[in-house]
């Protein structure tokens, strides 16, 4: 799937329907609204931090992009995190599972 191959190249892409413009998440082979074909485009940053926690001092959290696309990833540069703050993708890849690393976004 294009989602996986693009992640391996460090790009987080989502499928957008060429007919109804619906953005599909999680990744799909066709539009889940109108069954139309998809084009793949890079996700729009920054995202918003929805929630986070930690395990063995590794911080992880849910980040939401484009008001709908949510993923869990590792968070770095994590001093004074706040829900609702803007986050950017500092790294992404794919090895058995998608792997995302997020960091606070500074304009």
């Amino acid at each position: 799937m294009i989602f996986e191959s693009e992640l391996k190249n460090g790009k987080f892409v989502v499928g957008q329907c060429i007919k109804c413009r619906n953005t599909n998440w999680p990744p799909n082979n066709f539009c889940n609204n109108c069954f139309g074909d998809l084009t793949w485009r890079q996700i729009k940053e920054p995202g918003i931090l929805i929630e986070w926690s930690s395990k063995n001092n590794q911080i992880f959290g849910i980040v939401e992009f484009e008001n709908s696309i949510r993923v869990i990833g590792t968070i770095t540069n994590d001093t004074n995190l706040k829900t609702g703050e803007k986050m950017t993708i500092s790294n992404c890849g794919f090895s058995e599972t998608p792997k995302f690393t997020f960091a606070p976004y500074f304009e």
């Binding site: 989602f3 998440w25 999680p26 990744p27 929630e51 986070w52 926690s53 395990k55 992880f60 849910i62 949510r70 993923v71 869990i72 990833g73 829900t83 058995e96 599972t97 998608p98 792997k99 995302f100």
Partner: peptide
């Protein structure tokens, strides 16, 4: 199947997110 969880597949990760959000 759930790729939206990234590498955080084990159920404790969704359990902890529910917990943190309810606490907050």
């Amino acid at each position: 199947w759930d790729v939206s969880r990234g590498e955080f597949k084990h159920p404790i990760f969704w359990g902890t997110m529910f917990t943190k959000a309810h606490k907050r």
